[in-house]
Computed example of a mutant assay.
Amino acid sequence: MAGTDRTKKSEATVAPGPAVILVAPQLGENIGTAARAMLNFGLSDLRLVRPRDGWPNERANAAASGADLVIERARLFDTTAEAIADLDYVVATTARSRDMVKPVLTPETAARQMRQAFADGGQAGLLFGPERTGLENDDVAVADAIMMVPVNPAFASLNLAQCVLLMAYEWFKAGDDTVGERIEYLQTRPAKKEELIGFFEHLEGELDRFGFLKPLEKRPSMVRNLRNMFQRAKLTEQEVRTLRGVVAALTRRHPKGEGTPK
């Protein structure tokens, strides 16, 4: 599994989260891929209501691709009511409108509402229906809200694992504090201002020597433009050393006053 850190125990990456209730799932492979999607985002409470091909299911194990924790903990129920009995807030996922007066949420809003349920000391769950038909109206009726994914209306169908993945991601994102952008420094660090200024002075000195920073009255603005350009690059310490080496290599064969290299 690409990207998996095998030095970390699965249990350490699982925190309290919403139960994922699959009502009458058809294929073991779909259960397995849903379990994999759950564990990608730290969910482990899988509940199965009348799986068509029975349970346990070897195909589910194979399709889970290492999400054994979820498969092993999966619980079996005869009815949806039994599967959600201990929950305080339940969201039913559907691709079509229902003739019911219920809040209709986006995935992002549904995740926030479930987070709030946990913050209030309760538990939450997500209801998913069979792959071909979706949830029955009777299943939707026992939910607190409906979640509909804003997708292409001409092709709105998501497979089971896709829908579970989307909601698990939104749940995880709602409690995640990862910064939107970062730079990973490998065996280096951001350049200090002292190092940047040393590079600027080195470059400007050579440009003066070869007559680039002319006419004299334009030199200050040209220097500022060069410095701003390199500042935007957010250079590392290694990159500054490399650039200084480039400048030195390009100029060392040309004694002072010899002119611009050809």
Rank of each mutant, 00 (worst) to 15 (best):
T4A: 00
S10N: 03
A12L: 07
T13M: 11
T13E: 12
P16S: 12
L22Y: 01
N30D: 09
A34T: 14
R36T: 11
D45C: 06
L46P: 09
L46R: 08
R50S: 14
R52T: 14
R59S: 07
A60K: 12
V70P: 11
F77K: 06
T80P: 01
I84F: 01
D99V: 01
V101E: 13
P107G: 07
T109Q: 03
Q116T: 09
Q116H: 05
A117F: 07
A124W: 08
A124K: 15
G125W: 09
E131Y: 15
R132Q: 15
G134I: 14
N137I: 13
D138V: 12
V142P: 07
P150K: 03
L160V: 15
Q162A: 10
L165R: 02
L166V: 06
L166S: 05
L166H: 04
F172P: 05
D176G: 02
D176C: 02
G180V: 01
R182K: 14
E184M: 05
Y185D: 00
Y185R: 01
R189F: 00
A191E: 03
K193P: 08
E194W: 03
I197S: 10
G205S: 08
G205Q: 13
E206S: 13
F210L: 00
L216G: 14
K218T: 10
M229T: 15
M229L: 15
Q231S: 15
Q231R: 15
E237K: 07
T242E: 02
L243K: 12
V247K: 05
P255F: 06
P255L: 04
G259A: 00
